[in-house]
Each structure stands twice: as C-alpha cells, then as structure tokens.
Design a protein around this nucleic acid. Sequence first.
DNA 1: TATGAATGAGTGTTCATTCAT
DNA 2: GATGAATGAACACTCATTCAT
Lengths: 192, 192, 192, 192
Amino acid sequence: MPDTTRAPRQDNRRIQLLDAAAALFAEHGFHAVSMRDIARNVGMLPGSMYYHFPSKNDLLLATYEEGVRQLSQRVDLALADEDEPWARLEAACKAHAEILLNESDYAQVILSVFPRDVAAISDNLKPLRDGYEDRFRILIEALPLAADVDRNSLRLMLLGALNWSKNWYNPRHGSPREIATDMLALLKRSLV
Amino acid sequence: MPDTTRAPRQDNRRIQLLDAAAALFAEHGFHAVSMRDIARNVGMLPGSMYYHFPSKNDLLLATYEEGVRQLSQRVDLALADEDEPWARLEAACKAHAEILLNESDYAQVILSVFPRDVAAISDNLKPLRDGYEDRFRILIEALPLAADVDRNSLRLMLLGALNWSKNWYNPRHGSPREIATDMLALLKRSLV
Amino acid sequence: MPDTTRAPRQDNRRIQLLDAAAALFAEHGFHAVSMRDIARNVGMLPGSMYYHFPSKNDLLLATYEEGVRQLSQRVDLALADEDEPWARLEAACKAHAEILLNESDYAQVILSVFPRDVAAISDNLKPLRDGYEDRFRILIEALPLAADVDRNSLRLMLLGALNWSKNWYNPRHGSPREIATDMLALLKRSLV
Amino acid sequence: MPDTTRAPRQDNRRIQLLDAAAALFAEHGFHAVSMRDIARNVGMLPGSMYYHFPSKNDLLLATYEEGVRQLSQRVDLALADEDEPWARLEAACKAHAEILLNESDYAQVILSVFPRDVAAISDNLKPLRDGYEDRFRILIEALPLAADVDRNSLRLMLLGALNWSKNWYNPRHGSPREIATDMLALLKRSLV
DNA sequence: TATGAATGAGTGTTCATTCAT
DNA sequence: GATGAATGAACACTCATTCAT
C-alpha cells in the first residue's frame, strides 16, 4: 500500500498533462493538436487545463524545457564515464540518438516543433535548443583533427544527420545506438 | 516584372495559388496556414480557390508534385554534365542544397511537411518523396568505396545532414553550394 | 437513322435539366439538392443552367408545373373510359397511385416538396397543387352516398392515405393499382 | 411565464435548444434550418450549441427521441381508460391527431423529417418511428372485423390519412379530435 | 482543483448566382 | 448555348480561452 499521505502529491496532474502534450506534439505537431485533444488524453475537461498552464504556448514552452532537461541530463550522464575525445563524442551521439528515437516524447518535440512555427514564443524556444547543442560544440572542439578540418561543418553534419533520422528511423533496421555508431564511423575513418 | 500582355493568361491564377501555397506551407507548415491566408496572398476570395483545387489537401498534394518535379529536373540537369561518380554525387548534392535553400518554396514544402502530418493523403505523398530520393541511392551505389563502407548509412547521413540544413542555414555563412561541398569533403577524405 | 434535321431540337437540354431536377428533388428534397448536383447529372457546368432557368426556385416551379400536367393528363385519360361514379373514382385513384409511386419523378416532387418549404414561391406552387386536387372533389361530389357522409372528410382521407403511401410503398408488397383498390374497397363497403 | 427562481437551472439551455430545433425543423424541414437559425432563436452563439449537442444530426436525433417519447406517452395515456377495441382505436387516433396538429413540434418533426432525408442517421431514426407505429398495429389486430378485411391496408390508410392531415389542417375547420373522429367514422360504418 | 457553460474568432467548404468570353 | 472563373454569403463545426460556481 503506497503511502500517499507522506509523499507530497506535488502537482502530478500537471505532469500528466505535460506528458500527454509532449506525446501528442511529438506525433502530430504543435498546430495539429488541440487543447481538447490533450485534455481528453488525461481525462480532464479543457477548461481545467488552464489552472495548470495559462495557455497552449506555455504548455509547449514547458515541454521544451523538460525536453532540454532530459536531453542534457542523459548526455551528461553518458559523458561522465568517458575521457578520450572520440569516445566522449560517440557516447554523446549514442545518448542523443537513444533519447530522440526511443525514450522521450519531450526530446522529439524539440526536434520536430521548430521555434519559427510558434512565432509568439520563438524567442523563448531558441535559446533552449541552442543551450543543449553547445555541448556538441565543445565535444568537437576537443577532437584531435587535421588542421584543415572544418569543425563547424562537422558538428552541423553530425547533428543534422542524427536529428533527421527520426524521419526514417525504423527499429527493425538497427537500434539508435547502432545508427549513431555507424554515422560516426563514417566520419572518423579519415578525420583522425 | 511579369509581362502580362504577352503571356497567355490561361490558368495563371492556378499557378499564383500554387506559388502562394508553397511559400506559406514552406514558411509556417501545413497546419499553421489557412485557406484564407493563401487566398489573401493572391487577392482572391476563399471560396474562389475551390474552383482550382477541390480541397486544402489537394493543394498540398499539388505543391508536393510540383516540388518533386522541380527537384528532380534540377538534379537531373546537374548530372547531365558529369561522368565521374564522386563528381556526380557532388553535383547532385549541390543542386539539392541550392534548390532547397535558395530557389524553391516547393522543394522546402517537401522537406518540411511530412506525410504523417496529413494522414488523409500520406499514401499519396510518400511515393513522391521516395521517388526523388532514389536518385541518391543510385549515385551512391556507383561510388568506388572500400568494401566495409555501409552505403545505406552513407546515403542517410548525407541526405539527412543536407535536409536538416534548412533549420540552421544562414546565407551570410556560406552559399548552399559551399555547404554541400563542405559536407561531402568531410566524408570523401577517407572513404575513397 | 432518326431524322435529327427535321424535328426541331427545341430546347432538349432544358428537358434533360428538368428531368434531372425532378429526379433529385423527388429523392432528396429541394433543400438537399444543389444546382451543382443537377448540373453534374446532365453533364453541364453550373453556370450554364442559368441560360435555361433564371434561378433554382424557377427550376422547382417548372418541375411543379410539369408534374401537375403529367398527373392531370394521366388521370383525365383514365377517366375517359368510365361512366359510373365509383368506377370513375377508382380509375382516378389507380392512376394517381401509379404515377406517384411508379412512373413520374415530377409527381413525386409535388407530393414531397411542400409549398411552405420554399416560402419565396409558395404562392405560385399552391394553386398548382390545388388545381389538380379539384378533380377529386368533383369525382366525390358525383358519388351516390348516404346523406350523412361527409364528402370533404372522405376526399381528404382518400387522398391523404394515397399520398402518404410513398413513405411506405414497397413494390414487393403489391402494385400501386392494388394499393388504390384496397383502400377504396375499405371505404366503399359501407358508404354506398 | 416560466418561474426561473424556483426551477433548478440544471441544463435548461439544452431543453431550450431542443425546443427551438423541434419548432424550426417542424416548420421548415431539417435541411432548410441552419444551426445559426436555432442558435439565434435561443439567444446563443452558434458555437455554444456544440457544448450540448455534438452535431446537427445529433440534435435531430434528440428531437426524434423526444418526439417518440411524447407521442407514445400521450397515446398510452389515452388508452388507459378504454377497454372496447373500437373505442381504444378511436382514443389513440384522437391523441395522435391532437399531439401532431396542436401540441407538439416534436411530433411534427417525426412526421415531416423522413429518415431517408438524413442518410447518415437514417438507421437510428427508422426504429424510433416504427416502434411508435407498432401500437396501431396491435390496436387494429384487436378489432372485431369481417374475415375479408385487410388489417394491414386499414392501418396504413388510417395512419397515412392522419399523418397527411398536417398538410391541410386548419384549426378553423374542425379540431384535431374531430378530424380523427370523422375519419374513423367513415371506416367504421361498414367494417364492424 | 476542477467543472459546466459559454464566447468570439476562425476552420475548411459549399451555396446560388453572375458575367465576360 | 456553354464555359471558365469568380463572388459574397452562408454552411457545419472547432479553436483557444474565460469564468462563475
């Protein structure tokens, strides 16, 4: 019998709401999902949601923040065990692919709802995205590369290819980790 | 400045409509654009559009078809002058990047409105996309590569990275051609 | 080989249009049928109909007129051979049932589109209906009946029952003529 | 003058809505009445109706159900006091005519909006109509009639004539009860 | 915290009709 | 006689949001 009195229930409806919103935004996109859709998914009336979130945009912003938190934490955790620069980059890419393709609707939202789609809050969304991606800038900076390799292109290529993978990913043809490994292998062959 | 006196007027409103739809779908996404938005953009009443297109979905389908036509024609033209496998792939990537980032709203639509976003016609949309991408499968097949290189991963990586570039592309930091060249260079170093 | 040069073609598109309108009005009702529906049925564009009929209401009016013409002609023909009052009434009822249930969409329109449904021309429609029904008033007047029989009720009952039959008529359970005969028999038993 | 202070307010707008819909459907027919018409009649915005009824079809279905309820209840009440078969039939016919012609817009809807007019819900509508009409089948079964009288024709004639009466009924020329009495009298003379 | 009930603007779409060609 | 193209109003319906209870 779980002790429901001790543990502070601290807004668990808010979390259900956020989960439902993330799942629906990730699957159908921000504009194709209505507040009613989300409410129905958590067994709540539409009006009731406004106690928890003042607007649909705020709901998106909150999923974004949670998504960045999850991505960052997951990648940071993966980095904790690695020292060698290439190993560190590979660990980050694997974590990125896994959370994106497998684990978190929140992460999907960040990569499928673009700031420009929601003009009113695009200024709030962009820094969240960028803050996360900075990790990869640093990881690539640390790589021992030939002098003429453009590290900026490398980062954009690697992250772009990984992010786009959600458009073709099919669990039957390799795990997220394998996808990350394969891509990195292609680049690593010569760049070292 | 279009020459309205010389050009035969036949059905030019349909094309205006298609152009406006492509531009708006590319910029804001399918669901964020209303039929009224498109109508306003061409100076037409909302109801009048239905003479030219029976539904919003059909309008999207028509932009998709035109987009694929433009992409294919542009890439095929670029390939006509090249014989060497790597040169052919590079020409195709440059054409792809240019039309995507610079030249055509129609191409953008194909890469930013995903079939799954419009369930009712996703079965019509998918083959159009796939038909175009087959070109790259063939180009990569023709490359002289070390035996252990996974050509499938290579294709997915290259196209994914290029397609994602519309999310960060800024004309001040290099032309579309340069982006394509840079990315290909990163891969080519070792794979040959 | 029919001689199409001799016979004046005299507006045969107009007749096609009228036929299609009658069929559709009879089946779905006036308000549920659009001008486009009718146009499509005769392979014409909606705008083209306005050469033949200035408005949808006029089209209805024309079907009404033709319906009354057909009903009247059919009933008058049936009466031509009969002299005895009851036989005359029975002949009229049979003709009425047959044309209503079997033969003419125009007749159906008159009995399923009510003047009040189209307020703007209800004043034009009502006299058409009434003019036809007068025949039955006269036929019933001629019957040799007991003094206390209300001929007005008789007429309303008989015609009402016949008109309503289109709501339950099923060709498998008796022909229109049988329906008319059965109903008249019920009344005739005692009234003579 | 409704007592708004005493009556519990619970869901009274739904009933107002249903009343207005019944009145308008009865007068103009289903297709000729718009949701805006109904909303205007109860002083509500069109969108607000959808809180109470999910669609126009559902609104019709609800009026149908209420109409059948009212008809059935009224007829059953009238039958409660009668034992003799002819008296029972006459009581039912009087009640039927009164509620149809005088008392209830809901009953009118059932007899003027035909299931086939609203294809999408015709399967829901038909059994409601039929369920009510079964009462008359039973009443006529109980009549002591000559062996050669077709009870089926009798039922169809009687109900058809009564139902059609709404097309000519004018309160100045006799009450609904008188209409029912007169019609039954015509049939009863000989059939006994 | 949540509900019932509403709002006002907006959605995609259809309507009868017009008219230059 | 008919078409291509449009109009403007209306259609059924959905939207994000509000607020008294």
